[in-house]
Every structure is written in structure tokens, then in C-alpha cells.
Design a protein around this nucleic acid. Structure first.
Ligand SMILES: [Zn+2]
Ligand SMILES: [Zn+2]
Ligand SMILES: [Zn+2]
Ligand SMILES: [Zn+2]
Lengths: 153, 153
DNA sequence: AGCTGTCATGTTACAACATATCATTTGCGG
DNA sequence: CCGCAAATGATATGTTGTAACATGACAGCT
């Protein structure tokens, strides 16, 4: 039982606990995101599933499945890049707080982090001063990953 | 000379200073963004220009013009919403630093603010700790504006 | 077994967002 | 006026995402 299958197992438990089903197709999409160590677009997932599981995966299904997985917090949507990424914390037990995402603009690698609550609070304060209200503290930031920084140098 | 025209005037000066031309079409697109007090999609701008200036504005042109205006810092692209907004500081003389954007998810109103350098520094530090590098401190945050908060209540 | 309701998936069509490429026009210096 | 470069026009195509309705799978009931 490899790394990916282990995470899928956890995801399945989690779904069972919520009274929803992690079907075969849903597993395929989730597995695609897990085995890729970067964010993928919906259509990249279509290609992955079609190539990998030997039957065409309709784009519509992928979108529906991504919506389901996002709802279950197994997947996060990155609006900054129009891509999707597997949650980095499916297996680690600890409660899932609102994450922040560092997205490599070069290679789409993504790091899911938790910024200091104090920093978040300062941000929220700045927003309030401007007369707006944050609807989520999920942030997405344009970055370069270690590998791509090294390569650029 | 109304508000919009005044800003366009400033923009024209700025372009002249950079040795580039703010043509009629470019003025039309910029004016569309200025008179709207919210972010607009490229195709909303197509509609605006076509309706407002009596000749069809091809989508292709709008994209080219937005690219130009963005390059001149007269317009900002909001990736979080796939929309575009006029710079809030065209007329105010002071140098344009890297902005942060508060985007109302309800009505697309946008506030362009400057977050405390100290807060930005903390963010950058968190990113570095995760082994990534920020490529820009332009942030986009999902918010509700005052009006929409009031309405929701 | 046959019926029925619910959730998941399939299929088709289209809307919305964005870029590529090549032709034509326009503004401007020489 | 000529020739160049910048800007725009025209057409095609690629990418991302949703709407609407049909079909399939399965569980619980009669
Ligand atoms: Zn997560
Ligand atoms: Zn990278
Ligand atoms: Zn600005
Ligand atoms: Zn609003």
C-alpha cells in the first residue's frame, strides 16, 4: 500500500464519517491530485484520468467531483491559478483551519501553510479600516518554489 | 470637464511622459473602467464600449488595450475574479507602490489599499520559512464592501 | 421480483475568458 | 511624400466553467 493509497484510505474514512461516499471516480480524481505534487487544472485531471484509468472522464464529471471534494475539504480550489490541489492535511488528523496557499508561478507547486494568527489579525484590521470585511482568510500568493528559484539564478 | 475626463487627462500626461500614446480606443476602455466604480470583465468592457461609442469593439482589442494599460499602471488585473479595475491613484501624484486589493464578492466593488509594511514583512517571512519566495506583494482578498455587508444583515 | 426515491454519472450544448496569427490602417520622423 | 513602427481589425482557436436533461446504480420497501 503506497503513499497515495494510504491518503485515499484516510479520505475514505473521513467521508464515511460524514455520511457521504468516496466513489471510484471520486477516488480517481483525488488520486490524480495527490500523486501530482502540484496544482492541476480540471482539464489536466480529465486527461490524467482518461489516460490512467482507460475510460474517458467527462469534464463535467471532473467539475462535479472537484466540487464534492472541495466541500469535503479534501481538495482546495486556487482561484489565482484556476487550478485545484489536494489538501496537504488529509492524513494528519489535526483539525483543518483556514489555509493560505503559496503557488509557484513557474511549476504550479503549492504549499499549504498557516500564517501566524497575529499577522492575519493585522490584515483583517487593515481591511476593516478600509470599510470592507474579509469573507475568508484563505489567501493565495504568487511565489516561486525553491527549485524554481534555484533554476532562475 | 467631469471627473472621468479629469482622470483621463492625467493618464494622458503620464503616457506622454513615458513616450507612449493613449489612443482613442485606449481612452474608451480606460474611461469604461473609471466610470464604473467596480471591476469589470474584459467582455463587460466590450459591451460597454460597443454600446457607448457606437462601434463594435472587438474582444481582442480590449485584451490588447488592457495589457497596455496594465503595463502603464493605469489598470490592475484581478486574477481572483478575472476582472480588471482602474487604478485608484491615476490622479493623485504620489508614487504608485505595490497595491493590495479588497474585492467585494457580491458587487465587484474594489478598494485598492496599502497594507502596513510591517504586516507585509511578516507575510514575506512566513513565506520564506515555507521555502518559497514571494514574487509580488500584490494581494487580492475576498471581501464584502460596506454596502453589501449592510444589505446582508 | 418489481417499484420508487436518491445520489452519481453521462451527454450535449453553450457561456465566459483568453491567446495566436496575419492583414490592414494610422501616426510620425526623415 | 516615403517608409517604418505602432495600433487596430479580422478570424480562428484554445481554455475554463455551467446549464439542462437523460441515464444508471443502488438501497429500502411491497
Ligand atoms: Zn487543506
Ligand atoms: Zn516551482
Ligand atoms: Zn493602482
Ligand atoms: Zn459590495
Amino acid at each position: 500500500m503506497n503513499h497515495v493509497e494510504k491518503i485515499i484510505g484516510h479520505a475514505e474514512q473521513q467521508c464515511k464519517a460524514h455520511g457521504v461516499r468516496l466513489t471510484e471516480k471520486r477516488k480517481q480524481v483525488l488520486a490524480g491530485l495527490i500523486q501530482s505534487d502540484k496544482a492541476l487544472s480540471a482539464y489536466e485531471l480529465v486527461d490524467f484520468c482518461t489516460r490512467h484509468y482507460g475510460q474517458t472522464m467527462p469534464a463535467m464529471s471532473v467539475y462535479r467531483i472537484l466540487e464534492f471534494l472541495e466541500h469535503e475539504q479534501l481538495v482546495h480550489k486556487l482561484s489565482l491559478a484556476n487550478k485545484y490541489v489536494a489538501c496537504a492535511h488529509i492524513s494528519c488528523g489535526h483539525a483543518h483551519t483556514v489555509p493560505q496557499f503559496l503557488i509557484c508561478r513557474q511549476c504550479s507547486k503549492v504549499k499549504e501553510i498557516s500564517i501566524q494568527p497575529a499577522t492575519i489579525a493585522e490584515l483583517r484590521e487593515s481591511v476593516n479600516e478600509a470599510g470592507f470585511k474579509l469573507v475568508t482568510t484563505q489567501l493565495e500568493m504568487n511565489c516561486l518554489c525553491e527549485g524554481c528559484v534555484a533554476q532562475a539564478a
